[in-house]
Structures are given as C-alpha cells and as structure tokens.
Write a protein that binds this DNA or RNA. Structure first.
Lengths: 137, 137
DNA sequence: GCAATATACTTGCGGACTCAAATATATTGC
DNA sequence: GCAATATATTTGAGTCCGCAAGTATATTGC
C-alpha cells in the first residue's frame, strides 16, 4: 500500500547518495555540484548565455541563490556578466572559454561516475526509467 | 549516450520538487521533512526508540545534524531522550504519545501528497520503478 | 589494569541555500 | 504621459546542515 511513501524515501536516499558522490568527484576540479549544473546549462544554451532567472529556474534554485553562486564564479572568470541593452533589469551570464574547458574536464568525471551508478541497468531499464520519471507529476 | 547524466539530473529535479511539496504540506503541521523522517523511523522501530547514531544513519544525516534537529523536538516534547544504563555514551530517543499523534496526522498529508505525484503510474510501473531503484549502486 | 584506540554524542564554525525586503527598470491601463 | 503594477536582480537575516574538534565513556591489547 505505501509503496508511494517508500518510493519517495528511496528516491531521496538515492539522490543524496548520487549528489554526494558526484560532489566529491567535482571537488577535484574545485567546483560544486551546483556550479557544475550552471555550467552545464550554460554550455547547452544558445550563445552559451542565459538570463540569471532562467538559469535559476533550470537548475532549481532561487534567484538569490544564483546571485550568490555566480559571484565567486565571476571572480575566477569561469563565467562573466553581460548587460542587456534592451532591458536594463536583466543581466546575462556567459560561460567563458576557461569555464568551458573546466566544464569539459568536470563532465568527464561526472560521466564516469554516473556510468558506475547505473552499471547494473540495461538499456531497457534506462528507457523504462526515463519513461516512468516522465510520468511523475 | 548521455542518458546517464540526463537520468541523474531528472532524479535530482524530481527529488527537490517532491521534497519542496511535502515540506510545504508539513509546514501546516509545524514540522519539516527531516523531522517527519525521524518520526517516521522512530514509529517504525521496536519500542519506538532508537540510538541517535542509528537514526542519523537511517535518515541520511550526520550525527551533529541529528543533535541539532532533535533539540527543539525535545523541547516541544514530541520526542524524549532516554539514558542507557549499559553504555553511558549512547542516549536513546523515543517518540512520545504526542509525537505519534502529530506524526499520524502529518503522515496523512504526506500520503495524500505522494499519491498525487504518482497518480499517473500504474501498479506495474511502481513495481518496475522500485526494481530499477534497487539496481542503482 | 592501564594505555591506546574506538565509539557516541555535542559544540564551534562555516557554507549553501531560502525568503522577504530593497532597488532598479519595464510594461500596462487609463 | 504617468500612476500602478510587474519583472529582474541583489542584499539582509536566518535556517539547516556538515566537518572537525572536543568531551565522555567503552573496548582492546599487552
């Protein structure tokens, strides 16, 4: 009956295990999981540039969280702020070349690590898994 | 190919969505998700009593996290500390009658909420889902 | 039987967030 | 065209939690 509840607990247990593991891998590159996530989104985006609000939304953080996360990243020049001539309220964030290089290296670690997690799943499992996740409201 | 990575992002997105939702439901009862988790574990355990360390382990928190989490819970008497005659290092935590009452009400909210998340999944999906989660390392 | 080590827990400090308020700019309705 | 409202971002205050160090007690090996 309370498979539902059970499911939620299992998801959150697995999630924190995964994040912890990835975070420890990323610390070798000197970045956190959140920083990796923003670089990932930026490098996927057109022109490697996004509004801070959209970034916040994509990575599941608040706007203020993004501000505080990006500050040190700007300082070490892995991302940079760009103003918007059309709308002075928004400021774009762009991943720099150095940032992309860092990201690509980090990505390799994360991919290796994620492969391990799912080693026991066959392709069918993964497809099914993605399908099920899509059905969650 | 990078279904793996995709999977991880989806899991963590869904996880934070779920926790946020549950947390907002639980705030009506005046408790957080972590507090709910410890009450859940306590009410499942034999004699409704656990060592702090085992509790930490079960809910995926550090020992210090548990100490800080339990302090206010002891103050409002939903759990209470019990000493161990055999080993003076350990202190047990027991959920009180008031705590169990609170937990049972909160549980109803959480169950309702979790049912909604998985509304579009049939029984087969849920079984498959649990199976797959078990295969993750 | 006692020094060395292990275990259970708490405390000090700090990091990573969030929410609400503050600020600055845009848009809308009249 | 300007007041009212909406949007994007930053800042202040506070929460939650982890790590490392501190304290207290138990166990182990000699």
């Amino acid at each position: 009956m309370d498979n539902n509840l059970d499911l939620i607990f299992k998801i959150s247990t697995i999630n924190s295990k995964i994040i912890k593991n990835i975070d420890s891998q990323l610390s070798i590159h000197g970045i956190t999981y959140s920083e990796f996530l923003v670089m990932h989104q930026l490098s996927l985006s057109a022109a490697k540039t996004m509004r801070r609000i959209d970034l916040a939304d994509k990575v599941g953080m608040s706007a203020s969280g993004i501000t505080r996360l990006l500050n040190p990243m700007e300082k070490i020049k892995i991302v940079k702020k760009e103003i918007n001539a059309r709308d002075a309220r928004v400021s774009f964030v762009k991943i720099t070349t150095a940032g992309e290089e860092l990201y690509n290296n980090a990505l390799k670690s994360v991919e290796l690590c994620s492969k391990e997690f799912f080693e026991d799943l066959n392709n069918n499992d993964i497809v099914k898994f993605l399908e099920i996740l899509k059905k969650i409201r």
